[in-house]
Design a protein around this nucleic acid. Structure first.
Lengths: 249, 249
DNA sequence: ACTTCGCCTTGACGCAGATCAACCGCGTTC
DNA sequence: GAACGCGGTTGATCTGCGTCAAGGCGAAGT
């Protein structure tokens, strides 16, 4: 599981990158960064493939270009909890750390944009604002993790589902920057089981609550995965979290 | 709630600081850092006092010297979830961010060691490895948050209690560095309600499970707060987490 | 066309933990 | 020393979600 054979090194200009690598973007930065830009390479994975196993040596950092991956932790008896959801533009990796702390699994076809860790860390040392940008991104992750602790600890099953749908809808909306006058639609990138693992529920409960939200008109479904949100505010209300999180601002 | 009147500016040498400020320690660092060291000041709070309210402007960063504080998030209907437990040596604050994201409350008498945010941020810019150290600390926090997501999402009430006790016991043991041949003892710095807020439970359930652990000999109690752990491995087992986390290594 | 398999849905039932309520011990106030 | 408040305990009951079980649907293989 160390260096997969589907590793492809594609030199390119920053503008070609559909999602700019937020930690290091040669469009905003210059000079030494262009050297790093040259070291950039892509890796792709199929849905279901494991990117890296918890505990394995991890010699790269990167970010998600397209597709969705999850960070999961499993207890000895098999109970598993998702601890991170990686959507396009999210960063993966722990500069300064040896091993991976969690399983990283692609839940859809996935493309990542990577740097080898060593040179990346070196660049971090000689280019102060990379470390700072990384710090800001890590603080964002920490905020997301803490928000999720509220969901896990204090929300009902229905609120949990609504919260998850809201997160995905919001992130999805911020990508295809087409304002869709209040109606959002997206494909769920997760199975019912993965949703359950994210929310600390069972897959049956997830299924029931999704059905309930559909029956109550909070969402519409086309097939099992395509979700339409007729009224985002209503969804946020169901999530027990009345701020719109800046989607419509 | 902005600048409390109990702010005291105590110039000192690093060695005097019972808990060295992990982000910036003039014993390890030098030169410019000594300038920062001079800007260090202390603030103290009584048990129950709020250090800062969520949303308030936060113009300092700091770390806990002694005592315990909590980060909490409250929903509109009053449900509250603790999202961070701040023990001695833990860092508080978000360099580069304006407001506080959570309520910070002292649950015991508390002493913090602070820097004004502006000069601290400036120092971060001109002293690269401060940003890097801060990044490492933030990654630690993120790991802790994710570990807690597993507790919240997948553990039973009994396991949750055991997990919390184990965390406190371990942190406590690492402070008074006296090896106590397997027997640990400490005072719970949290009320039953605060424990419930940390664990996503009700205070009644916390009370019942603590009693159950006592009845089963996993812990002993002197009064309501003083806990004795006769066998740490047993406690870890109850927590559903068989690694000792390095306490006895 | 039939089978198989993965993913999902729905129903019946049980239980862990929430809720509601009474009470205890202890320190503080008047 | 009576009254009070605060934190904690314990009991009785309720309920949301887990568990177990059966079956549906669509895609892919034979």
């Amino acid at each position: 599981m160390l260096l997969p054979d589907n590793l492809t090194a594609t030199p390119h200009e920053c503008g070609d990158c559909p999602i700019r690598h937020r930690a290091v973007c040669a469009r905003c930065d210059t000079d030494e960064l262009l050297r790093l830009e040259e070291m950039k390479y892509y890796r792709s994975f199929e849905a279901g493939q494991t990117v890296i196993w918890s505990g394995d040596r991890m010699d790269f950092v990167g970010s998600v270009v397209s597709g969705v991956a999850t960070l999961t932790q499993t207890m000895e008896d098999g109970r598993t909890q998702m601890v991170g959801l990686l959507l396009p533009s999210d960063f993966v990796g722990r500069p300064g750390r040896q091993g991976a702390a969690y399983n990283v699994v692609a839940t859809t076809d996935l493309v990542m944009c990577c740097f080898r860790k060593k040179p990346f860390e070196h660049m971090m040392e000689i280019t102060p604002h990379i470390a700072q940008r990384l710090l800001q991104m890590t603080l964002d992750e920490l905020d997301a993790a803490r928000e999720w602790m509220v969901v896990l600890g204090r929300k009902t099953a229905r609120e949990k589902i609504a919260s998850l749908l809201a997160i995905i809808a919001r992130r999805d909306a911020s990508l295809h920057l087409v304002p869709t006058e209040g109606k959002l639609a997206f494909d769920l990138p997760l199975t019912r089981e993965a949703m359950a693992d994210y929310l600390g529920l069972t897959l049956e409960t997830v299924s029931r609550q999704v059905s309930a939200l559909r029956k109550d008109g909070v969402i519409e479904l086309q097939g099992k995965r395509h979700v339409i949100v007729p009224d985002f505010d209503r969804l946020m209300e169901e999530a027990g979290d009345d701020s719109d999180g800046g989607l419509l601002s």
